[in-house]
Amino acid sequence: MSSATYAVRRNQNLYRRSAQLELGPVSVSFVMIAIISVLALLYLTQITKTSVYGYRLSELADKQAKLTAANQEMQVEAARLRSIQQIKSAPAVAQLVPETQVHYVR
């Protein structure tokens, strides 16, 4: 065993004191206030986020209602354009002649 090794052993602190964190009443108060503030901030952030989503939802619902109305309007217009009355009034139909005799090809 070398002399250096002995030297380390000699200086070894055989009794270890555990580290103790001690906070006074003022520090505890500050920590508590900080924790509560952070939690309140988190809560407010979440609430705000929810409200923003609520408004976004309302906007989307409005948009959906407008699109539904537009879709209905176009469906009605398409149905009107395809109606028998419209077809009868078409210029091309006015030039058609009624069939007089039908022959069936077997």
């Binding site: 989503y53 609520g54 939802l57």
Partner: peptide, 10 residues
């Protein structure tokens, strides 16, 4: 609802 009567998601 909010002050303008818009529904809020809760």
């Amino acid at each position: 609802t909010d002050t303008r009567g818009n529904p809020i998601a809760t």
